[in-house]
Design a protein around this nucleic acid. Structure first.
Length: 565
RNA sequence: GCGCGAGUAGCUCAGCUGGAUAGAGCGUCGGCCUCCGGAGCCGAAGGUCGUGGGUUCGAAUCCCGCCUCGCGCACCA
C-alpha cells in the first residue's frame, strides 16, 4: 500500500468510529501549497452537516481516533475551515518507492474491473479510402482507452466494425467501375457522391492486371447505367469489382493500422449481419416488441418512446434497410457475445446516432442497460504545417492520411499528439513541433527523461536488477526536488485509476509531461553517481522508480520508452 | 431554431469529479550556469476562469439565462 492508501483506510476507520453515516467517503488530496503538508482531507467538513457539529470539532475528534503511526504520519494540523493536514514521516514518504520497485511494470494496475468483459469499438472506417487524421485520433484514443481499462482489471476486446454494406459501398463500387472503364479507354465520369481519390485509380489498374480486362460492351453499358444513376446490368461483374475494391481498401487500412501499431481482436463485417440473417431477425424482434409502425410506405421505429428526438426509418420505401437497423443488430451481438459493457469511440459528427442506437436496443426489450453502449466522442483535428492549416479536401483526393503523418513525424509522436488533449476539445496537430528533436516537443521531452535515467545506470555500469528497496535509507532523499518527484511517482496509481474510470487518456499524457519535468529538474540539480553511499543508493532507487513509472505510462499510451536517444 | 461540445495568462492547454493564494509550457523581462547526456537553472510581470444570476461553509467545477465558435439535426455512415 502506498502512504495515501494507508491514510485513506485509517480515515475511513476513524470516521466510522465517531459515528459517520454509512458510505461516507474520505476525500484525500495533495494540497497545492506544500505548507499544508503532504496530504489533506476535507472529511470533517463533509461530516459537518450529517453530524450537526462544527467542522473543526469533528476534525479534532477524528484526529484523536487516528492511528498515526500505522499510517506513517509524523504530524497533523487542523487548518482553515476544517481541513486536516498530514505530514508524513520522512521515511514513510519515500518508502512508497519500494512498492514501485517491487511491482515494476505492474505498478499502477488494479483489479477494480474484476475481469468484466468490455468491448471497445474504434476506427470503424468505411472501406472506401485510406484512414485520415480523424481516424488516427480515434485509433490512438481507442487503443489507449483499451489499455487503461486493461490496467484497471477489465477484460478488453478491441473491435473494428467494417461498414462494408449499404449506400456508401454502392457508391464506391460505381466509382470503381468508372475508374476501371476509364483505364480501359472508355470515357466516363465519377457520379455525384462518388469517390474520386487517386487511390481508386491505382486499384483499378491492379484490377485490370490481375483479373484481365472485362468485355468492352459490358463496361461501356455499365458506365452509362451509372451515369444515369443506375446499377450496371452485369451484376456478376459489378459484384466482383465491389469485392475487389473493398478488399484492396481494407488491405490498405490494415497497413495504416499496422504502421500505427494498433491491433484489433475482432473485425466485424456489417455485410455478415445480412448474410447470417441478424438484420432480418432484429426487425422481426422489434416488430414483435410492438414499437414499429408503417408510414409513407416505410417501416419506422418509434424511438421517441426511448428518449430519441424523432422516430427513425428502419426500412425504406425501396425495401432496403437504413444503416440504423444493422447498427442495432450489431450492438445486439455485442450484448449477446457477453460484453456487459461496450464503449464506442467515434468522431463527434456521429453523436446524432448515439440516442437512436440506444433507443433501438431498448425497444428490443431484451434487458440491455439504458446507457448501452457508452460513447467517447472526440472533436475534429486540424493539421498545421509551417504555421498554416493543411486543408483536408476529399474532393481533390488529397488529404492528410494517418500514414503520411506517421511517415513524417514517427509513430510515437503521432500517438502522443493525438492523446495530449481532452477528446472533447478540438485538436491542433503541429507537424513541425511533432518532428522537432527539441525539448519543446513533449514526446521528445518525456522520452528524454526516460533515456537520461537509463543513462545513469549505463554510465555507472550498474545492473538495474540489483536495485531494490531493501535497506535503502529513504530519508536520504531530503531535497525539495526529490520530495516533489517522489510525490508525483506515488500519485501514479490514483492518476491511472481516474483516467481509466473517466476514459480520459490525456490525463496520463499530461501527467507524464509534468513528471518528466520533475525528473529533468532533479537530474540537473542533483547528482547520483559519485555521491556518498547512502545518498547514492537512495537516488539510484529513485531513478529506477521514476524510470519505471515513465515507462509504465508511456506503455499505456502505446509510446516507446527508449534507453538512449 | 433544436441537440452536443468548447470558451481559463499574449499563444497552446491542464485543473485529479465542489476545497485553502487558479497552474504548466511557449513567448516577454531580469539574473546565474557550462556539471552523469545536448541551453539548462533561479526569479518577475501577466487572470472579471465568455457573461449575468442561483445553489452552500466554499464554485473554473453543479443549476438556469444570454453571447461567441465548432459539430450534428437524412428514407448517407
Amino acid at each position: 500500500m502506498t502512504p495515501d492508501e494507508l491514510l485513506r483506510t485509517e480515515l475511513a476507520r476513524a470516521a466510522a468510529a465517531i459515528g459517520a453515516p454509512e458510505g461516507t467517503t474520505a476525500a484525500l488530496e495533495r494540497p497545492r501549497d506544500p505548507a499544508h503538508g503532504d496530504w489533506a482531507s476535507n472529511l470533517a467538513m463533509t461530516l459537518a452537516k450529517p453530524l450537526g457539529k462544527k467542522p473543526r470539532e469533528i476534525a479534532e475528534a477524528l484526529v484523536a481516533k487516528l492511528d498515526l503511526a500505522a499510517a506513517g504520519v509524523a504530524s497533523t494540523e487542523i487548518a482553515g475551515p476544517g481541513f486536516i493536514n498530514f505530514r508524513l514521516a520522512a521515511g514513510a514518504r519515500a518508502g512508497g518507492l519500494a512498492d514501485i520497485l517491487a511491482q515494476g511494470a505492474a505498478f499502477g494496475r488494479s483489479n477494480v474491473g474484476q475481469n468484466e468483459r468490455v468491448n471497445v469499438e474504434f476506427v470503424s472506417a468505411n472501406p472506401t479510402g485510406p484512414l485520415h487524421v480523424g481516424h488516427g485520433r480515434q485509433a490512438a484514443l481507442g487503443d489507449a482507452i483499451s489499455a487503461l481499462l486493461e490496467s484497471a482489471g477489465y477484460s478488453v476486446s478491441r473491435e473494428f466494425y467494417y461498414n462494408d454494406a449499404g449506400v456508401q459501398i454502392e457508391n464506391l463500387a460505381k466509382s470503381f467501375w468508372v475508374r476501371v472503364a476509364q483505364a480501359s479507354g472508355i470515357e466516363a465520369a465519377i457520379p455525384d457522391g462518388g469517390y474520386n481519390g487517386d487511390y481508386i485509380k491505382e486499384i483499378a489498374e491492379r484490377f485490370l492486371s490481375e483479373s484481365g480486362t472485362p468485355p468492352h460492351p459490358a463496361l461501356l453499358a455499365g458506365a452509362e447505367a451509372i451515369a444515369a444513376g443506375e446499377r450496371p446490368a452485369d451484376a456478376g461483374l459489378f459484384e466482383a469489382m465491389r469485392r475487389f475494391a473493398v478488399a484492396a481498401l481494407r488491405a490498405e487500412q490494415d497497413l495504416d493500422l499496422k504502421a500505427f501499431g494498433v491491433q484489433f481482436d475482432v473485425y466485424y463485417l456489417e455485410s455478415s449481419l445480412y448474410t447470417d440473417g441478424r438484420v432480418d431477425e432484429t426487425v422481426r424482434m422489434l416488430k414483435k416488441a410492438g414499437h414499429t409502425f408503417d408510414e409513407d410506405g416505410a417501416l419506422w421505429l418509434r424511438t421517441t418512446d426511448f428518449a430519441d428526438d424523432k422516430d427513425r426509418v428502419m426500412r425504406k420505401r425501396d425495401g432496403t434497410y437504413t444503416y440504423f437497423v444493422p447498427d442495432v443488430a450489431y450492438h445486439v451481438t455485442k450484448w449477446q457475445r457477453g460484453f456487459t459493457r461496450a464503449i464506442n469511440v467515434q468522431g463527434s459528427d456521429h453523436h446524432g446516432t448515439t440516442a437512436r442506437v440506444r433507443a433501438g436496443l431498448q425497444a428490443l426489450e431484451i434487458g440491455v442497460p439504458k446507457g448501452y453502449p457508452g460513447y467517447v466522442l472526440h472533436q475534429m483535428v486540424t493539421v498545421m504545417r509551417g504555421g498554416e492549416e493543411v486543408k483536408i479536401s476529399k474532393r481533390a483526393g488529397s488529404y492528410v492520411t494517418v500514414r503520411d503523418l506517421i511517415d513524417e513525424v514517427g509513430r510515437d509522436a503521432v500517438r502522443y499528439f493525438f492523446l495530449m488533449r481532452k477528446g472533447d476539445s478540438q485538436l491542433v496537430f503541429d507537424v513541425d513541433l511533432a518532428r522537432s528533436q527539441s525539448e519543446e516537443n513533449p514526446v521528445y521531452y518525456i522520452q528524454m527523461a526516460h533515456a537520461r535515467l537509463s543513462g545513469i545506470f549505463r554510465v555507472g555500469e550498474i545492473d538495474t536488477a540489483t536495485i531494490t528497496g531493501d535497506g535503502v535509507q529513504w530519508d536520504a532523499l531530503a531535497e525539495e526536488a526529490e520530495r516533489d518527484l517522489v510525490a508525483s511517482l506515488l500519485d501514479y496509481p490514483r492518476l491511472v485509476a481516474g483516467a481509466a474510470e473517466a476514459l480520459e487518456p490525456h490525463r496520463v499524457a499530461v501527467y507524464l509531461l509534468e513528471t518528466a519535468r520533475q525528473v529533468h529538474l532533479w537530474y540537473h540539480k542533483h547528482h547520483v553517481l559519485g555521491e556518498p553511499e547512502a545518498i547514492l543508493r537512495a537516488r539510484l532507487a529513485l531513478a529506477k522508480a521514476a524510470r519505471q513509472v515513465l515507462a509504465n505510462g508511456l506503455n499505456l499510451l502505446g509510446i516507446s520508452a527508449p534507453e538512449r536517444m
